[in-house]
Amino acid sequence: MLRGAVGICGFLLLWECAVQLGAVSAQQLCPPSQVAAAFFTKLADPRPDGATLGAHFIASSSVALGGFLLACLIGLPLGLAMGYYQPVYLLANPIFELLRPIPPIAWIPIVTLLLGIGAQARIFIIFLSAVVPCVINAYTGIRHVPERYIHVGQSLGMSRWRIFTKICIPCALPTLFVGVRLSLNTAWTALVAAEMMASVRGLGYMIQMGRLLIQPDIIITGMLTIGSTGALMSALLSLIEKRLTKWGAER
């Protein structure tokens, strides 16, 4: 952790020096000191985009977490089923492979027509991005369960369902959690695209207004807030994973 902190501090120092000494134009990249000032100002000041950083954060968190949770709720069971039951795989995989490469921003017009312009539309945009790693990793986790574990279950007379729930899913948990972490990161990544739809709050909206008003300090503040939040949530998920996958970790 210390080395990580030193690395970050070193990077910030390099960045600050590069701008202050003129190696990089301040017009092209504002220094971290200016970003820090913008961060602290935005904690209480709604200018220039109409809301404080806290209000933007709350708006974005609800949308990002909503899309993420929906992705987990639908993506994980779907991926597990696709990995274990061949008919489900044959039915779902072609549609999944077709939709998977489509970037979230391309969905905006269709989602607007189908779901309108409220939070539900933005949550759905995020869901479309975040569901992909859930499905892929859940499927991969099941497919990589060692055959001998399944044979042991069969030899003990376990039903397919019991083998699925008592052997395959616990075995797949580490891979599942990787997918969940990736899904969380993807949800935050898709946030800016989602908040291009009819937003007046949110970190993505704040970044867009920063762009419109040529305030790179606001843009970078928004970007770092998204990045930091994603990293913190990912770290929290890792802690949860360690508790739940003790068996898998010991292996």
């Binding site: 607007t112 189908l114 309108g116 312009i117 739809m197």
Partner: peptide, 18 residues
């Protein structure tokens, strides 16, 4: 006021929004 660029606003209004 709902902030939308003109293209999106056209689609949204056509979909019954606003």
């Amino acid at each position: 006021i709902i902030n939308m660029d003109v293209g999106q606003a056209y689609t949204a209004f056509k979909a019954g929004q606003g």
